[in-house]
Design a protein around this nucleic acid. Structure first.
Lengths: 181, 181
DNA sequence: ACTTCATCATGAAGGACGTACATAATGTCT
DNA sequence: AGACATTATGTACGTCCTTCATGATGAAGT
């Protein structure tokens, strides 16, 4: 079986994807490929994580979107409104409505009227939801441990740091764009 | 407007997501949260990149999956088979068939019989496809530059490196699992 | 108080990505 | 020649996500 997957190491001993670089170098001069390569690498990594997570929480019946919402709700004891969930997840509020629908159908989340604003709906995690997460925790932990094999705590912190800087840039950018409109 | 998006800095000056950490700390003891936090951060970053890319190549009509295939094809002058594309992208071959369908409908890619194996189909990028990528390059470069604002070349290389290490782990893992089956 | 405008959740409709299973054509091995 | 594997694709389906429209509610100005 021919192996398409391939990584090489550059002069600093850092990995890069030769295929991605070849595709980029012919269009963009030297330095600017760095950002594109990094972006492609992040995408690949995210896919890998998604795969592992799906494999780990298999048979449990929750998919990426709903899991994302459930995790956010498990973090806030008082629940969150649909709109807040949408903002924090970076997706449309209509989408969150649907995700909460399925979670509610499964009994993992409950809707309640919001105290301050009668237009809003408060989503709150149920005991069944908490339990679901309890069961999800162990295999996921193992899966993440496997995919981050040989990462030092410093590596992990640095990866987190760089990714969040990126997300922060994006957030500021969209805020700026919306403000300028 | 209440701002849900939020990042803080830890003792090392590195960013973290307080909400994600709060959600994790109550389940997992100290050190193991690092991997989960990193995974969540990668997911967030990937979303941000996807957003920027969609915004940059807007009005051009290609979405993430098809763009991924087109980029891979632009890297190999002789074209690639459906199966190889599927392997390198980490998705099912049936999925790639559909993506190549839409690309072919748009005239950006052509199918041809593979010389060595008459079961295989060779997908090759057309001149129109090359041109499409030419037009895509500039806005995307700008978008990536914006989202990676204040990243030093070393930051970018390190981010790429960490992400590819992760992907490499994942690849070895799945290979191991498939071999053991 | 009344009007006007903004915001919230949701209905309706649709696009894109991705999967699993079945199948016909072709390769490979014994 | 026959048994089995592999390749691409048809069929059927699920999930995520979007935009636009709508009814209910809040907020702000007069």
């Amino acid at each position: 079986m021919k192996d398409v997957h391939n990584v090489s190491a550059d002069a600093d001993g850092r990995l890069f994807d030769p295929q991605a670089r070849a595709a980029l170098v012919q269009f963009i001069g030297g330095d600017d490929t760095l950002a594109m390569e990094a972006a492609a690498a992040v995408r690949t990594a995210s896919h890998a994580i998604e795969r592992m997570r799906a494999q780990g929480s298999e048979n449990r019946g929750l998919s990426s979107g709903t899991l994302d919402v459930l995790l956010r709700l498990s973090a806030s004891a008082d629940g969150m409104t649909i709109g807040d969930l949408a903002k924090s997840a970076g997706v449309s509020s209509r989408n969150v409505t649907g995700l909460v629908d399925t979670l509610e159908r499964d009994g993992l989340v409950q809707r309640a009227p919001a105290p301050h604003d009668r237009r809003s709906v408060l989503a709150r995690i149920t005991p069944a939801g908490q339990e679901w997460i309890e069961n999800w925790r162990r295999p996921t932990q193992l899966a993440m441990g496997a995919i981050f094999r040989d990462f030092t705590p410093d590596d992990l912190a640095q990866l987190r740091h760089l990714c969040l800087r990126l997300a922060d840039n994006h957030h500021k950018l969209t805020q700026y764009l919306n403000g300028a409109r």
